[in-house]
Design a protein around this nucleic acid. Structure first.
Length: 822
RNA sequence: GCGGGCGUAGCCAAAUUGGUAGAGGCGCACGGCUUAGGACCGUGUGGGGUAACCCGUGGGGGUUCGAGUCCUCCCGCCCGCACCA
């Protein structure tokens, strides 16, 4: 017979709801704890048990912290704008709004099965105009500060989703959402100047308590390189080519220069073989990123004939090439090539028979070209014999003194392409006004007073003010992407045509929408004050609740959401809307739950484990306990039905223990110690998010209780409290069975007594020459002499130690072991 | 190629940061209870050996009284980035 989990779970979920137990008040006398799950986008596929793992874990932590007396904020919402929702809607021929509403309902039903303690009064939805009003508001602030710019650079274009994408949305040259090959397409775009925040995004990582791997991923993504800009003059003309290098120490080995195909100078120079060059440039431009890498990094390129560059250090003339192994989008789009000390330059030089001049020697050992490490300079005139690091400084000083170079820092991170040519997103709250454009272009008025920074930088583009927000997404019947580079919104004339809020003249709305990442870049602030109609968040509430103490979500967001949100947060900090420089104090990623067959759970494989089925068969609490127990949280792990059954068995055994309760029973010393050790272990493990070992300890403790004939009520109550965060319904039921009227979650978390943590009688291990040969029982704190004497009474030890004289050395670790060297 | 992580019974895993390797779960075996069981309960469960003991944390080497833990080289796996000058 199993315990009646079905009735119990329903009963207590109703009880919690009816008594508002999951509602969080802004009780500022209490210490706060803000624990947050990344909010999901409500897909049509629904949830499987893997999605719940993170929610269960944070729920355990939230309930635990509540019992510890914290004021816990634990909210949930929906990230419902964006490509996934829209593509689903198109595929199923329903309006995105309808699809989203249905999917949210489905998600919410699935989530509520397992008894999560979210405060649903604070629920948010990024597609709700009351929410996205503030997403738009933040955008206008970013614009006003001159951090949103109209750009005409070629962008990543997904031919299947028919929209431009940010760099972060591209994976290995493919669309992160649909897998289509990304093309480069010139398109007018709004880009956000995240690069202005690159240094702070990098630097401030030292203030967050995140996993090493996530921090490293962000560092790599931001990709800071410190180096120098050096001017190479073009012989005989006034032009110069500025290159970026981090290896100025190798400059005497620079035997040619390479320009990226996109380099602007190519069109300005007098080139003898112009046709050949243009041909190469054209071919390079249409290559996709995939093609570039697919060619096994074969280094193609063409020499620009008729001109030479002058190495400012050697004064020698060197050839100039165009090659697509140099990227137009990084540095200056031009490099000095040092084939002896760079693999790519080496390959290229070999192929084109160019001079390879070695200028660095390894500090020790033989040299093998290309030698790319730091070393000692030679063939470098007066800089010979310097070590690389020192040489870089001195060579830079020389360049600065002679005015052909300076220090420079570059970042790999690109500005955030923020426009999507799609329907299902927040409209970008800008209008274009011809009249204002002319004003700015002609500098007719005192434009500094009349226009903000963004408006001056983007003539004609006027940002809406707060009272005009939100710009609501018009309800339409046709919303499929056009593919022309225009958003579907462009076809809605009466929406597009509007008045300029500045001059009242005719204006038209921006028809592109924001990317999926916009709402999620600040949503965590809205939970603090979800229904505020006047501002994004009340200052006092923000100050009380921020930063997020514990954030849990997918690792795939390391270089997407987690970077964007940090960027917006820092911006909000700069305009004094938030009080912390970082939003997420601690972040832990949730490991995948794979199906029992080791593959990802997917409808395609038919291996999806649905929460409802699990809850029907074994109950929500077994599911919760198992997901906590299955392994270390961040690790990906295979689902196991027998493992789940094991947890179910465990709960049934605890259920059975009720019959052994005795009011009179007094626990023996051993059990008291184990109980206190258990409290300590679980308290520490849950706080450290080591839920698997916490559950293991609960099991070990229950195994011990089962050996008892009777169990004291007090001990049993403590066990139930320890179990409560993991199995809330189960624990409430037993708690009330024990005669308690109120919810167990109003109880204080058990405290252990240090006095009862350590056993007085302990076992000391006796080693002979480092090998285990016996153990003895003694009092805690016994000294070496006493332990040795006791040990020498042990038969087994005596076999090895014939007499005391044989002991050459003794190593005694208090209360642990005695190692005798003979 | 670069960066991060990992490798412990048949499987998932634990090990207080250098001190009894394998807690806990699954599985398996035997026993009990059962008309029956893919249910439940109990006992056992790294390998070898009658035993004393020996061997054992991917492999080799090292430091140490003592190494899963530290150092070094190698092998394998996972994740991220990838012509970033």
């Amino acid at each position: 017979m199993s315990y009646p989990f079905k009735e119990i779970e329903k009963k207590w979920q109703n009880f919690w709801r009816e008594n508002d137990l999951d509602k969080t008040k802004d009780d500022r006398k209490k210490k706060k704890y803000y624990i947050l799950d990344m909010f999901p986008y409500p897909s049509g596929a629904g949830l499987h048990v893997g999605h719940l793992k993170g929610y269960i874990a944070t729920d355990i932590l939230a309930r635990f912290k509540k019992m510890q007396g914290f004021n816990v904020l634990h909210p949930m919402g929906w990230d419902a704008f964006g490509l996934p929702a829209e593509n689903y809607a198109i595929k199923n021929k329903v309006h995105p709004q309808k699809a989203v509403d249905e999917n949210i309902k489905n998600f919410k039903d699935q989530i509520s099965i397992i008894g999560l303690s979210y405060d649903w009064d604070r629920e948010i939805n990024t597609t709700d105009p009351n929410f996205y009003k503030w997403t738009q508001w933040i955008f206008t602030k970013i614009f006003e500060q001159g951090l949103a710019l109209r750009s005409f650079e070629p962008v990543n274009w997904c031919p299947s989703c028919k929209t431009s994408l940010a760099n972060e949305d591209v994976e290995m040259g493919k669309c992160e959402r649909c897998g289509a090959l990304i093309e480069k397409k010139p398109l007018a775009q709004w880009v956000l100047k995240i690069t202005k925040y690159a240094e702070r995004l990098l630097e401030d990582l030292k203030f967050v308590d995140w996993e090493e791997s996530i921090v490293e991923q962000q560092k790599n993504w931001i990709g800071k390189s410190e180096g120098a800009l050096i001017d190479f003059f073009v012989a005989g003309v006034k032009e110069k080519i500025t290159i970026f290098t981090t290896r100025l120490d190798t400059i005497f080995g620079c035997t040619y220069i390479v320009l990226a195909p996109e380099h602007e100078l190519i069109s300005k120079l007098k080139i003898k073989n112009l046709e050949e060059i243009n041909d190469y440039v054209q071919k390079a431009k249409i290559k996709t990123d995939i093609q570039r890498t697919a060619e096994e990094r074969e280094k193609t390129g063409v020499e620009i004939k008729g001109i030479k560059a002058i190495n400012p250090y050697t004064k020698k003339e060197i050839p100039i090439f165009v090659a697509d192994y140099v990227l137009g989008s990084y540095g200056t789009g031009a490099i000095m090539a040092v084939p002896a000390h760079d693999e790519r330059d080496f390959d290229f030089a070999k192929k084109h028979n160019l001079e390879i001049k070695q200028v660095i020697n390894p500090e020790k050992g033989e040299i093998e070209l290309p030698f790319i490490d730091d070393g000692v300079l030679n063939n470098s005139e007066k800089f010979n014999n310097l070590i690389s690091q020192e040489a870089r400084k001195k060579l830079l000083d020389f360049a600065i003194k002679n005015k052909f170079g300076k220090k420079e820092v570059f970042y790999k991170i690109k500005d955030w392409v923020f426009s999507r040519q799609r329907y299902w997103g927040e409209p970008i709250p800008l209008v274009f006004c011809e009249n204002c454009a002319n004003k700015i272009k002609n500098q007719k008025s005192k434009i500094k007073n009349e226009f903000n920074k963004g408006e001056i930088l983007n003539p004609g583009w006027i940002s809406l003010v707060e009272k005009d927000l939100p710009v609501e997404l018009p309800k339409v019947d046709y919303y499929e992407p056009t593919g022309t580079g225009e958003s579907p919104l462009a076809n809605i004339k009466n929406w597009v045509l509007t008045k300029c809020p500045k001059c009242g003249g005719a204006a038209r709305r921006e028809t592109n929408t924001m990317p999926q990442w916009a709402g999620s870049s600040w949503y965590y602030l809205r939970y603090l004050d979800a229904n505020n109609r006047k501002e994004l968040v009340d200052k006092k509430k923000e100050k009380y609740w921020m930063p997020i103490d514990f954030y849990v979500g997918g690792a795939e967001h390391a270089t997407r959401h987690l970077i964007y949100a940090r960027f917006w947060h820092k911006f909000l900090y700069d305009i004094k809307k938030v009080s912390t420089i970082e939003p997420f104090k601690k972040f832990i990623h949730v490991g995948l739950v794979l199906a029992e067959d080791g593959r990802k759970m997917s409808k395609r494989w038919g291996n999806v484990v649905e929460p409802k089925k699990v809850a029907d068969e074994f109950g929500a609490d077994s599911c919760r306990l198992y997901e906590a127990f299955m392994g270390p949280f961040i690790q990906s792990i295979e689902w196991s039905n027998s493992g789940l059954r094991g947890c179910f068995r465990f709960l049934n055994r605890v259920w059975g223990l009720k019959d052994k309760i005795s009011e009179k029973k007094i626990d023996d010393k051993k059990l008291v110690i184990l109980l206190n050790q258990t409290i300590k272990k679980i308290t520490e493990d849950v706080a450290a998010f080591k839920l698997n070992t916490a559950v293991a300890q609960l099991m070990a403790f229950v195994n011990e209780l089962e050996k008892q004939k009777e169990i004291s009520k007090k001990t049993f109550e403590t066990l139930i409290k320890l179990l409560a965060p993991f199995t809330p319904h189960f624990s409430e039921e037993i708690w009330s069975f024990l005669g308690n009227k109120n919810t167990i979650f109003k109880e204080n978390w058990p405290k252990y007594d240090k006095k009862f943590i350590e056993e007085k009688e302990i076992t000391i291990v006796i080693q002979i020459n480092g090998k285990l040969r016996g153990e003895i029982q003694t009092e805690r704190g016994a000294n070496e002499k006493k332990v040795l004497e006791t040990a020498l009474k042990n038969e087994n030890i005596l076999k090895y130690v014939k007499d005391k004289q044989a002991i050459k050395r003794k190593i005694y670790i208090q209360d642990k072991l005695l190692n005798l060297i003979i």
